[in-house]
Design a protein around this nucleic acid. Sequence first.
RNA 1: GCGCCCGUAGCUCAGUAGGAUAGAGCACCGGUUUCCUAAACCGGGGGUCACAAGUUCGAAUCUUGUCGGGCGUACCA
Length: 597
Amino acid sequence: MKPVIEILEDRISAVMSEVAGQEKCSAIIKQASDPKFGDYQVNGVMALAKQIKTNPRKLAEQVVEKLDISDICEFPEIAGPGFINLRLKPEFIARGLLEINKDTENFAVEKTTGPKNIVVDFSGPNIAKQMHVGHLRSTIIGDCICRMLKFLGHNVIPQNHIGDWGLQMGMVIYALEKEAKWTTEDKFPNIENIPDASDLSLEEFERLYKKVTKLVETDPEISKEVKAYTVALHSGDKWTKIIWDRARKISLEQCYKMYKRLKVNLNNNHTHGESSYKDDLSKVVDDLKEKGFAIESDDAICVFPEGFKNKEGDRLPFIIQKSDGAYLYATTDLAAIRYRVNKLKANMILYVTDARQKLHFEMLFAVAELAGWAKKNMLHHVMFGSVLGENGQPLKTRSGENVKLKELLDEAVERAKAVVEQKNPELSQNEKDKIAQAVGIGAVKYADYSNNRTSDYVFSFDKMLAMEGNTAPYMQYAYARIKSIERKAQIKDVDIKTELKDIENLNLSDPSEIELAKHLVRYSEAIQSAVSDFKPNYLTSYLYELAQKFSTFYTSCPVLKAEPEQRPTRLLLCDLTARTIKHGLTELLGIEVVEQM
RNA sequence: GCGCCCGUAGCUCAGUAGGAUAGAGCACCGGUUUCCUAAACCGGGGGUCACAAGUUCGAAUCUUGUCGGGCGUACCA
């Protein structure tokens, strides 16, 4: 079934076209701003009236007269300057619930009529370094977008564009030589003598990387040497390649562990890093040169796409090859576009990266379109804001380092554990651990999703783990309460299965029942709006409201002790709420639910 | 300097094509438990939507200007 709002939009828009004699009219239907206006309001009539210069209220009357939506709504009311207020019929709501009830997999959410091949580029950690808080948003938002698109029936192709070909490897190899932990060619002339690098740990790589980063900042000579090592790697030097292999392998192992912990669906099949495009880079540059788009400027090869200016008001360069001959991320990104369009047959490519890269992507897209490698509107930068500390600055440790993702999650789980310990000490250790994992990790993810993607947000363990408010624990608690009812049913001799079997007639009478039922029917609306803007917070808002409405219902309506004519309806409301929360959290957001907490 | 984003309740934030009296949560005040998990629920106070002008039946939303903040701006990603 289509979302109600879309059915109404279609039908009312059509009538508006007919009445006004205009081709394309939009009803612009919104949820009513106030419950006293009903469930939905039509805003588009006033705009149309303005357009065709007529009285809005009169136009609304004409529209209502011709409109037949009696299968869905009560008779529409015209209000104010020309609003049409719509109120759903209880029978319609009941029908909607029953339909969702039957469609156990898809909650009566309609699949897309035009499935696309959508590449989603996200996560993209660097090798030789642990994942840190800076990778959190890309990783989980990207994953959520993949899950939602897939649910709507698209062919989603996740791409993990890892940073495995950059300067950081040069740094690490340089440091290994200087510390005599590892030496290259001249020291090991025979292949048998080469250490297998298996003793090099990620921590070791990280330590070296950090050390050299500092050195490079102050010493241009070292910077030069580091670059030379990077060049050696790029030109196929087998000694440096051994170190690179090792760094890549152990870094990815860590990443995959992290993805598993975060319930992010990324694995080796999706890893397609910078290094995989290494042989295409020169072709990209040559191609752009041949086409006459790339020219030399200050010894670098640049494209100057239209519409970008620098401080002097001249064209801004998009540098695809540095003056020292090296390629950079602009080149790799272009090569990736060609691969994704030609080989992966992408109709759309989404880049889930932070907002600071906005200009880069604008220029990248402009160049790709200029070169004819991508069509207009194929490429989208799904950007996001930064994670800030309580001080309003980007989140760092006290010593100014990036916060490791692992440590962040560990702390969240630890704090969740303490709460479970306090609230439910009688549970087994194993259960407590499971709950702490679900709540702790869920809290971190949910807090991120529930903030507007495009703005920065302040990271706070206390807030994300609070039981009040729009948090993962609140949602998980609502779910656990329903599961508890189901367990109690057995003791109280209520056979839920039998009562819900072939249920056809509902008895929605209490206001809290009706409110909850209406909201359940709107699940597909929430998903549609979250997908069309790639904004998970629309989904979390929906789920939060659902949990709130359930809690209100739960408080005012006994379920197991309800009268026989009310009980099946209430059991159904509980069941559908639990299923919707579970689906939203686990399937779309990748957050676990728990049976008790 | 130029470009992009932002400024909404004491705090953290929603506000999805310009719609009716601007919404949540936290915090604050008051109430609810012999009853399915009170990690909950119900009620209350709290706003010049940074400021100013404009567009119109109607502006937090669009335009212009001012102030304040963030980010970016030729060889990092």
